[in-house]
Simulated scan of single mutants.
Amino acid sequence: MPFANFKTPQAALTKTQKEELVHRTTQMFVEYFGEGVRPYTTVLIEEVADGGYGRADEVFVIPDAYRAKDA
């Protein structure tokens, strides 16, 4: 069973963008493994709250300009 797990900042993607990510990821697995994997492919999109992650000793908060408008 192919499984993809995406972690994104909370409110960074719209509902439409999440749907597209699921469809495109599923299609990628189908192209790689064959049509038989489509019904078993799982795509998980996890939203991480502001301040819940960091890099290089800096806690990250997504700027308003990068927040999805119809999240």
Rank of each mutant, 00 (worst) to 15 (best):
Q27N: 13
P63N: 12
L13E: 07
R67V: 07
F3R: 03
L44M: 02
A65Y: 08
A71F: 04
F3D: 01
D64V: 13
R24A: 07
Y53P: 13
A65H: 09
G51R: 08
F3H: 01
P39E: 06
M1W: 01
A68D: 08
H23E: 13
F60P: 10
Q10A: 12
A12I: 09
I45F: 01
D57F: 09
G52A: 14
A71T: 12
F33C: 10
E19M: 04
V61N: 09
F6M: 01
A56L: 13
Y40C: 06
N5W: 04
Y53V: 14
Y66I: 11
R67H: 09
D70C: 05
A11Q: 14
Q10T: 05
T25C: 02
Y53H: 14
Y40K: 07
P39Q: 02
A12P: 10
R24M: 07
E46C: 02
Y32H: 14
A11C: 11
E46W: 00
V59S: 08
A11I: 07
M28W: 10
M28H: 11
T41L: 03
E31G: 15
I45Y: 03
A68E: 00
Y53D: 09
K69S: 12
G34T: 12
T8P: 09
Y40H: 11
G52C: 08
E19Y: 01
F3Q: 05
G34E: 07
A49D: 08
Y66L: 13
A56F: 06
V48Q: 10
T41Q: 00
E58P: 11
E19H: 11
N5Y: 06
A68F: 00
G52E: 07
T14V: 08
L13P: 12
V22N: 08
A11R: 15
G54L: 14
L13R: 15
A12S: 15
E47K: 12
A4M: 02
D64I: 06
G51K: 09
A49K: 11
A71D: 12
A56R: 14
P9A: 12
A71K: 15
E20D: 15
M28K: 15
E35K: 15
V48E: 01
A11D: 14
T8A: 12
E19D: 11
K69W: 00
F29V: 01
Y40V: 10
I45C: 01
T8C: 09
T8G: 11
V37H: 06
A49N: 10
G34L: 06
P63V: 14
F29I: 03
A49M: 12
D50S: 09
Q17A: 09
E46G: 05
R38S: 07
M1V: 10
G36V: 05
A68I: 09
T42Q: 01
V43M: 04
A71N: 13
F60G: 11
V22M: 05
E19C: 10
M1A: 02
T14N: 14
L13G: 12
V30D: 02
G54S: 12
F29M: 06
V61C: 03
M28A: 14
G54D: 07
F29W: 03
L44P: 04
Y40A: 05
A12M: 13
T42G: 02
P2H: 03
N5H: 07
I62S: 08
G52D: 07
E58S: 12
D64M: 11
I62P: 00
T16R: 15
E47D: 07
R24D: 07
